[in-house]
Amino acid sequence: MKTRRTGVTIVLPVHNGAETLPEALHSISQQTYRDWRLVVVDDGSTDGSAEVVARHFRGDRRVRLVRTEHRGVAAAANLALREADTEWVARMDADDLCMPERLEVQLDFALRHPEVDVVAGQVESFAAGGIGEGFAHYDAWQNALLTHEAIAREAFVELPVAHPTLLMRRRRILAVGGYRAGDFPEDYEFFLRALARGLRFGKVQSVVLRWRDHPHRATRTDPRYREEAFLRVKATYLAPRLRGRPLFVWGGRKARRLGRLLAAEGAPPSGWVDVDPRKRGQRSDGLPFLEPGALPPAGTAYVVACVGTRGAREEIRAALHGRGYRETADFWMAG
């Protein structure tokens, strides 16, 4: 298939999204940027999702509806990518709402920053009963990460880009293998793999998507989004950065679970860092606990910090910077 140089293809995989699809599709039809195409892959829906799409865009030649048996979101998204014929593709989910200027502002950013392969955007979460403090905190955190350097710095904390906001160079996404299916969050694995393969990220400083929270959201119901799955995929992509020096993992029980997963990936810790004075002289998994001041000099060891207490990451960063450790060279935040 010949790739068009102009326009944007929106790729939207859906499985049983009929309840929210009408609003999502309406938000697409209201885009101020008009040179768009839409590829919807109906992933074996049984609730009439395909019929919703067909009714909404009846007679609109910009829209292609592909029906398949149920194979999962990764396979559906990859099929949509292959069906696209434009240089730029925009990811979309069936339960979210694009802001009217979404494509216009993201494509403008992409054209002004030719070094960028993936353009994300800021989000505004919403829910029928209002969003909780956790989602509000996550939105504020990832909305503040605008540059490639900031996004890469936070890569192992959480997913620092809202996946359904992504505008991507299609050839670059296909070159890194598209999406993978497995016992892991496919959006986070895709992000970490793209980053490891050298793709550059950016983010527009405006809200481009209203992100719907609801009880059936995959992040709430799909076992691939459980904490252990996130830790495992972090370990897979973090371990190659941690070889050649002693490794120390900073944090509590979650950090030690991550340390075991890093060991399984070929980056075994040499010790645990904990501020709790009761841990002094103790061992876990045969490894000693260290106080932060006992870490080796900068440049001779790696540190991975995995902490959940709000404000703890900033304190650890300050302590390590004070010792001369450089973030993403000598230490990484991973939680």
Rank of each mutant, 00 (worst) to 15 (best):
A136W: 10
H113I: 05
A127H: 07
T147V: 03
V89F: 06
D95E: 03
P114Y: 03
E154Y: 05
P160C: 07
W88V: 05
A110N: 01
A127Y: 07
D117M: 00
A90M: 15
G130V: 06
D96A: 11
G129V: 00
A110Y: 01
E154R: 12
G130Y: 06
P114L: 04
Q142V: 15
S125G: 13
W88L: 05
A155G: 03
A152T: 03
P100M: 01
A150T: 11
F156H: 10
A144D: 10
H148N: 14
N143P: 07
E133A: 13
I131V: 15
E149W: 09
A128C: 06
Q106R: 08
F126C: 12
A136Y: 12
I151E: 01
G132D: 12
V157D: 06
I151K: 00
T86L: 02
E154L: 02
R102C: 13
S125L: 07
D96S: 08
F109C: 06
N143C: 09
E104P: 01
H148M: 08
T86A: 01
Q122P: 09
E124N: 11
M92V: 08
R112G: 12
A127R: 09
W88P: 00
A144K: 09
E101C: 02
A127I: 11
A140R: 15
A136T: 07
L145Q: 04
V157A: 11
H137K: 12
V123Q: 04
E87K: 11
A144Q: 11
D96L: 10
H148I: 06
V123N: 06
M99Y: 09
R102D: 06
E115L: 08
L111T: 12
V161C: 14
V105G: 00
G130H: 07
A110P: 01
E104A: 14
